[in-house]
Design a protein around this nucleic acid. Structure first.
Lengths: 208, 208
DNA sequence: CAACAACTTTGATTCAGATCAACTAAATGC
DNA sequence: GCATTTAGTTGATCTGAATCAAAGTTGTTG
């Protein structure tokens, strides 16, 4: 009923349109949801971090590709018995609705970012999100965080090119707002300036 | 329990963060969901057409403004008894989940548009969507459709400026792909060319 | 550890779409 | 039906980010 599956960085976990045989919970690693245009331009439409859920109650297929961004472990459940469980347990159905609404809110925040934010604002928002959501597991207090993707993947998430991502990271570093321990570990040095750089309402994060 | 409410074009139906007193179904008109940055840049994150649902099962507030784009009539239900109905009727809860997943799919398609499509592709996608979704009520066969928003609102929906919207509409008109009866009535003259101009996979619409 | 591949940075140049600025057409009110 | 306002078009110019083009780094593998 329950099984673990592993994927290497770069592996495709699910293709768009493929029948969904299982639902899953992210155990470790980072995966991305992405959509592609005819000519190959791609846009990530979601990130899956540990504890996130993969699956669509009542749907037999998905409208995007799911790809392992880093090495990934999933905890999988067969779809059919899982759906039976959902039908029989209102509490679980309710929880899934909450998750769907959270994803919807996240998608809409990202629409604002993609449609209206400058490259600098996009990068600042992305860093701020990682610093908040993907806190490194050793301590909750250090601002040291993982950057779990390549510049190219970040570009596809933010609707930019990898060159622009690189330039904006280095601009924020030069200004002393962030610092890099190495290419995939960063630290927020000035959270106030970072928040200002996102373009969001000052109280946006506090209220939500 | 059930009541009708009317709004004039431009009226704000709900503000972000406002407690949700009611849920509603769109009876007529068009409303938009939008988000705003500190400095006033705004991005529409959804459109509500007749028969669409306003409300968030289990949530007491919304994360965006809802504004009447044209004159709007809503059929409203008090939130508390509605939630009781949802809790007691699995079938209704299931239907709401379906609606949420549809919105999520729509949001993700729009993320691809906002992040990766050119101005021309955005306009073509928008027209194609209206021609498909908002077919004029007199006949299902004519390609005559309503354009239920101003150039400025369209720009906020597509992540463009009104000038660019105007230029791209006129470019498509000059190419004979669409034609305008007046500013708010258009007709698709060449559906093949329009589809090509969207940048989507040729089979995208057929499979979904 | 050398050689190779993958990723990142940096610089020069270009271009799509934004911005600025008139001007025109359509609604709305008196 | 004329005046005023609001919405839309069109042109000129500017600019942020894309594209093109090397180098420089880091990581991997025999």
């Amino acid at each position: 009923m329950k099984s673990y599956r592993s994927f290497k960085a770069g592996d495709v976990i699910l293709w768009r349109g493929e029948p969904l045989e299982f639902v899953a919970s992210m155990v470790q690693g980072v995966a991305s949801l992405s959509k592609t245009l005819e000519d190959g331009r791609t846009q990530m439409v979601g990130l899956l971090l540990p504890s996130d859920f993969i699956g669509r109650p009542g749907r037999k297929q998905i409208e995007f590709d799911v790809t392992a961004t880093s090495d990934v472990t999933l905890c999988c459940f067969d779809r059919v018995p899982f759906e039976r469980l959902v039908d029989e347990t209102p509490h679980v159905a309710q929880r899934l609705m909450e998750l769907a609404l959270d994803e919807l809110d996240a998608a809409r925040d990202w629409m604002l970012l993609l449609g209206r934010k400058t490259a600098r604002e996009k990068i600042a928002t992305f860093i701020e999100m990682l610093a908040r959501r993907g806190r490194s597991n050793t301590s909750n207090l250090t601002a040291q965080s993982e950057l779990p993707m390549t510049r190219d993947q970040i570009a596809n998430y933010l609707g930019l090119t990898l060159e622009t991502v690189s330039r904006q990271f280095n601009a924020l570093k030069k200004e002393g707002i962030i610092d890099f321990k190495n290419r995939h570990q960063f630290e927020v040095k000035d959270i106030i300036a970072l928040n200002e750089a996102t373009g969001d309402d000052a109280d946006g994060g506090v209220l939500s």
